[in-house]
Design a binder for these strands. Structure first.
Ligand SMILES: [Zn+2]
Ligand SMILES: [Zn+2]
Length: 815
DNA sequence: AGCACGCCGACT
DNA sequence: GTCGGCGTGCTC
């Protein structure tokens, strides 16, 4: 008898073992998607991790119900990768499956209630609830659990349903149905009997009394001649004919409708255009990268902004393709713009697949399958495309490798695509090339240590100068009363100058909304979120107060809840306020705002970029979003409204992050002519980071920071695991954290920091406690401590008072 | 993630 | 008293 260990799309601590029915033995494989039952009736699609002959002794197995596909949906490589992610990032394989598999390949059954017609309609034996449900069911014939909850207006509906089943009023079944649907399109074919002009001639006579059909036929013949194949939708649209007229021609057997399965992700021609030349600096860097790749698994390309890293990637991608391997090009979701897509498509045509959150679930399934069967040679995608089922990966490119969005925050698996990519690549024997103008300290350290290869490209493409940076003293200007609406005279003049020159301006402010909080000027009260310990941000556009931690929105309030006076004022400023002030100061300028709120609907990000390209926007105000990937020739001024807020986060990475941000956003200025200017407004103009930014001196920043990291035991010298505990009661979570820390401390000593409440101590009505565990870079020790942690977590959860404490480990946490 | 079971507060 | 919410445990 064979058994299969099955990964289910649930947060289960281990995989479940099912019996393989004899008839399935020949076809089932690791990676196969199977339908299994879990519990009394629920069915799920799970993935077979392994097949073996060890009968479990502790429980009796259920059989696998169904093999869902002809082919496995992942290769053993992916199963190995999932196992590593689960182990390294301290989560379940089910979590990984959930993140990896497209939604439409993940199935779970739905309970459906059916009316038992044999029961008749005598409801006299039923109580009120039963009567209500029975009547609804008689009317609707079938109901889902959610509908029953609405009808009965209560969440616990199972007791009522159970009664109705017992009384034989209803039947219940579990439906596990495929959700992925192939896309079908109707092609119109000409009856072969009418092929050729001679055969067609009698048709025109025949149709002389149906002029509309004649018209349609002529339109069809025209399309057939020009395009070879004719789609029904296109024919009707172009000819203006109705479906009825088409039906007429079909009934006369002149035309035929052929329903075909079509690709949602059509692959274009496999062609490669390398019609560009590298600069001598790029050539040199390319040669060095190649030499490095030959020796090391991972190479870091440190190239200043606008140095032409993408062209180097393109050359390397071409080489990988030529050796028959697949390529993965990862970049931050926000940098995955139409611009870069077009650019790569120009070079690689139809071999590229794009993968990001904008695709529909059906499209994702098709991309998944095309990556698996090798039709897609290159994937250009954000973090989650690392989890695609590559068949033979040769190269992973990680652009903007310093970017924090490569780390998944919520939910598990909280993986870092940079680190996970290195492991994934190793499974294929593939190479990894990471690129950035401002590498993560960890990466640069690894490169300097010789663990990674290091290639430096210090010259902007075309020998263009780096932008000139001016630090403006906010305090001094404030004293001189020169600051209007957070804009110093220097920044205002520079903006005016750019506008006069018909150039474009990018302004950076790291908070969205209008004001981060409201303040009662009479008593000092600040409106907070009901569920979170945080002030509400004022969004003027929506006229709402909104919590940036839980997303709850509240109507704007005018009256102070503490003293009753109507003296609430917006305090501090976000992008909306900047936008408004700009409009006031530069009334004729065309101003746009780019932040999470502004690009909420689907295509607005790309549209805004297009407007910028076409110079329909003069000034762009934005958050982090304006920092990445934007490449506009006409921008000659970048303004950072407040460097102070960037430099004052309570995070050991503040300086690194602030430098990266300012250097990257600076890089948007003067990308073609080298006449770029950057104005940074700051109160503390002496901050060392500002000087490093002024000099574009990454290495000085690195040297400065790395010493501190070593001294205080932070990455790259130590790995960090952040453990967050959550509970509805503050006292419970504090006690739990204290107890857990006391258990851990003997093993860790000073390598345990905390526990303490985070800055925002309550989110969504859960009180939080955090502790930080610092682990030396020694994989044995790391595994040992992780195992200890897991053990202590379960020990804590055994105690009845702490059962409902939620423990969230975050390995290699960022911030 | 469901779903069953059991304990406890609040309405008839 | 019972109804219904919610916390807790279990699913191969
Ligand atoms: Zn007040
Ligand atoms: Zn909130």
């Amino acid at each position: 008898m064979k058994y299969a260990d099955v990964i289910l799309p649930l947060a289960l601590p281990r995989n479940y073992t099912y019996a393989v029915p004899p008839e399935m033995e020949a076809t089932i494989q690791p990676g196969s998607r199977v339908a299994v039952q879990l519990g009394k009736q629920k069915k799920y699609a799970g993935i077979v991790k392994s097949i073996h002959e060890q009968a479990p002794s502790a429980y009796k197995t259920k059989p696998i119900m169904d093999l869902l596909d002809k082919e496995p949906v992942v290769y053993p490589t992916q199963l190995a990768f999932w196992e590593w992610i689960a182990q390294y990032y301290m989560c379940n394989e089910g979590d990984v499956l959930n993140a990896a598999l497209p939604a439409h390949l993940k199935l779970s059954s739905e309970t459906i209630l059916l009316y038992n017609d044999a029961f008749g309609d005598d409801f006299s034996s039923l109580d009120d609830y039963e009567y209500l449900l029975a009547e609804a069911l008689l009317l609707r014939k079938e109901l889902r659990i959610g509908e029953v909850q609405l009808i009965l207006d209560r969440s616990d509906v199972y007791s009522v349903i159970k009664q109705l089943i017992e009384k034989k009023v209803c039947l219940v079944y579990e439906e596990l149905k495929e959700v992925y649907k192939e896309k079908k399109e109707n092609y119109i074919l000409l009856n072969p009997a009418y092929e050729g002009d001679e055969a067609l001639a009698p048709l025109f006579d025949e149709l002389s009394r149906a002029p509309k059909q004649m018209e349609l036929l002529l339109a069809y013949l025209h399309l057939l001649k020009t395009q070879g194949e004719v789609l029904q939708t296109e024919l009707l649209k172009k000819s203006g004919a109705s479906a009825a007229q088409l039906k007429g021609l079909v009934e006369k057997q002149i035309l035929r409708v052929d329903k075909r399965t079509v690709d949602r992700i059509p692959m274009g021609k496999v062609e490669t255009n390398m019609n560009f030349d590298l600069s001598p600096a790029q050539e040199k860097a390319l040669a060095e990268v190649k030499a490095s790749i030959a020796q090391k698994q991972v190479t870091l390309l440190h190239g200043v902004t606008s140095s032409g890293k993408t062209q180097i990637y393109v050359k390397l991608m071409e080489e990988a393709l030529q050796s028959g391997k697949q390529v993965l090009y990862l970049l931050p979701e926000i940098a995955l713009t139409a611009q870069i897509i077009r650019r790569l498509q120009k070079h690689f045509g139809g071999q590229i697949g794009i993968y990001h959150s904008r695709f529909s679930n059906n499209e994702r399934v098709e991309i998944w399958n095309k990556v698996k069967n090798g039709e897609i040679r290159i994937v250009l995608g954000a973090r989650s495309s690392l989890l695609l089922p590559f068949r033979d990966l040769g190269l992973i490119i990680l652009d903007e490798e310093h970017d924090a969005s490569f780390k998944q925050q919520e939910p598990a698996p909280r993986y870092h695509a940079r680190d996970a990519a290195i492991y994934y690549a190793s499974l294929f024997g593939a190479k990894v090339l990471m690129g950035s103008a401002t590498p993560a300290l960890e990466s640069y350290y690894n490169a300097k240590q010789g663990k990674y290869g290091l290639v430096e490209l210090q010259e902007r493409f075309g020998g263009i100068a780096m932008p000139e940076i001016e630090i403006v003293d906010l305090k001094k200007e404030l004293a001189l009363k020169e600051v209007i609406h957070n804009f110093t005279s220097v920044l205002r003049q520079q903006i005016q100058r750019s506008l006069d020159m018909k150039k474009q301006v990018i302004l950076f402010q790291n908070r969205r909304g209008y004001a981060p909080f409201l303040l009662c000027t009479t008593c000092g009260w600040i409106p907070n979120c009901k569920q979170c310990d945080v002030s509400l941000t004022y969004h003027k556009h929506q006229d709402k107060l909104s919590c940036h931690y839980c997303g709850t929105r509240y109507p704007y309030i005018y009256t102070c809840a503490a003293c009753g006076s109507q003296t609430l004022l917006p305090k501090n400023f976000g992008t909306e306020k900047i936008e408004e002030d700009l409009q006031e100061m530069f009334p004729t300028a065309r101003i746009a705002r780019m932040d999470m709120d502004a690009i909420r609907n689907k295509d607005s990000h790309n549209k805004m970029i297009q407007l910028l390209e076409q110079q329909e926007i003069d000034i762009l105000v934005g958050t982090q979003m304006v920092v990445k990937g934007l490449d506009f020739a006409n921008v000659n001024l970048v303004g950072i409204i407040s460097a102070d807020s960037l430099l004052s986060y309570p995070d050991f990475r503040v300086n690194e992050r602030a430098f990266q941000l300012m250097e990257q956003v600076s890089g948007r200025s003067g990308r073609r002519d080298g006449q770029g200017k950057v104005v940074i407004q700051a109160s503390n103009t002496r901050h060392p980071i500002l000087h490093f930014v002024t000099e574009h001196n990454y290495k000085a920043m690195y040297e400065n920071e790395i010493t501190e990291r070593e001294q205080f035991g932070y990455p790259p010298f130590f790995r960090l695991v952040k453990v967050t505990l959550k509970h509805k009661k503050q006292q419970t979570v504090e006690q739990a954290a204290m107890i857990l820390a006391n258990w851990l401390r003997p093993h860790l000593g000073a390598q345990l920091v905390g526990p303490a409440a985070p800055l925002v101590g309550k989110v969504r009505d859960f009180y939080l406690q955090e502790m930080l565990i610092k682990l030396p870079r020694d994989s044995k020790r790391i595994t040992q401590v992780k195992n200890l942690m897991k053990e202590l977590f379960s020990q804590l959860l055994i105690e009845k008072q702490f059962r409902s404490v939620i423990i969230v480990p975050d390995v290699d946490c960022v911030q």
